[in-house]
Amino acid sequence: MTPAVSQVLADLAGRVARNAAPNIPAADRAGELGLSALLLGLAAEMWDGAAEILAQENADLRALLAAGAKVWGEDTRRRWLDALSQGRDESLRLSALQSANGELKVALIALHAELERRDDPEARALESQIWRALVAASDRRRLSGSPV
């Protein structure tokens, strides 16, 4: 969730306060408050499950990177994946989970591209696992009003 919910809520708080002033044109006020309400609704839906979604996704990514470390021939890259796969989410702050998630996804993108360059059954099988994980992550993040 970028921008972070906490940042957006802080901004919306100021915006709602400003729109309480009597000199704001009615159309501007209606537009700003309508959008603010829409975002508050999205925040309410995302907020409760956000930490669990990121923690689950990070665990899945680490499992994929561990599998990747076993099949990647090049030493430096293999050690990189291996080190990341052994990490843990020590903090359950969304900012910490998000930061770890970003780092893991950078490695996943590199692993995915490497597997696409190969044509052996091991690579194909792990690539299929990556696609399944990406679909599962997208399912977990899906909002109730999502158009897709």
Binding site: V8, L38, S138, V148
Partner: peptide, 26 residues
């Protein structure tokens, strides 16, 4: 402007899903 947050929150995952669909994974 809050209108800039809306697509980031509401459409980034949906756009990923759209890409997964076009590529035949969803």
């Amino acid at each position: 402007d809050p209108i800039l947050v809306y697509p980031a929150w509401a459409l980034i995952d949906a756009q990923d899903r759209a890409a997964l669909k076009v590529m035949g994974h969803l």
